[in-house]
């Protein structure tokens, strides 16, 4: 039996087709996904996976253990700005989420051809927590004259085997989007390593005009 996928509003994870996923569960994607969580959770399937953007799962189901919400997990398909979505699904659970529900959701996404990484319900999950301060540092050091954008990119590609340097990647996927994500994380984490770098602030201001 394939997983039931309900898309309400625009989904960053599934802008086009959704691959068939095996299993007994519901995937709720799109900007209005959270509105239908409780109805889906009562349907007694193995899991309900709700799409997250920059918010946490706890924003939708609260922080306290609850037998119905114990089968709800959060997910986000990682996507940088305007780039196509990656193949990564970050699968979010609370410490009281039913382990079988997490395993069922993981198996469903993997069955759909995705790579799944599990994580706790924290702002930025895994990838944004790691790349945003890194990108901010790159943008700041570019201002400082550490090296040209091309030389910085070349160094990181030759030295670490990156497929694309961070400067080219940010230029391609949108500095304004970097601002949007980092500003949310700075608010949530209170950590100034997430304060959008000057170049991102300018891109954001110009995009908002």
């Amino acid at each position: 039996m394939p997983v039931n996928v309900i898309i309400t509003g625009r989904s960053r994870s599934f802008p086009k087709d959704v691959p068939p996923m095996p299993g007994s569960g519901t995937v709720l994607a799109g900007t209005a996904a959270a509105d239908v969580i409780s109805g889906a959770a009562k349907a007694c399937l193995d899991f309900v996976a709700v799409e997250l953007n920059n918010e946490c799962l706890g924003d939708h189901i609260g922080l306290d253990a609850d037998p119905i919400a114990a089968r709800i997990v959060g997910f986000a398909r990682f996507r940088l700005g305007t780039a196509d979505p990656s193949n990564l699904i970050e699968l979010v659970s609370m410490d009281w989420t039913d382990e079988d529900a997490v395993a069922a959701a993981k198996a469903a996404f993997e069955g759909g051809g995705f790579v799944v990484a599990c994580c706790a319900d924290r702002p930025g999950r895994i990838v944004n927590r790691l790349i945003r301060p890194y990108f901010n540092a790159v943008l700041r050091r570019l201002d400082d004259g550490l090296a040209s954008a091309a030389d910085m990119d070349k160094t990181l590609m030759l030295g670490l085997g990156y497929p694309e340097g961070p400067n080219a990647l940010l230029a391609r996927t949108g500095l304004a989007d970097h601002h949007e994500v980092t500003a949310v994380l700075e608010g949530a984490l209170g950590d100034n390593d997430f304060t959008p770098a000057r170049r991102a602030q300018i891109a954001w201001q110009r995009a908002s005009k």
């Binding site: 990682f78 924290r122 895994i126």
Partner: peptide, 21 residues
């Protein structure tokens, strides 16, 4: 901080960013 295991973090960074390691 218990956000994820080393194995999950490695999986995530490779799949999201195309990093070889």
């Amino acid at each position: 901080q218990g956000v994820a295991s080393p194995a999950d973090i490695d999986i995530a960074m490779k799949a999201a960013m195309g990093y070889p390691m």
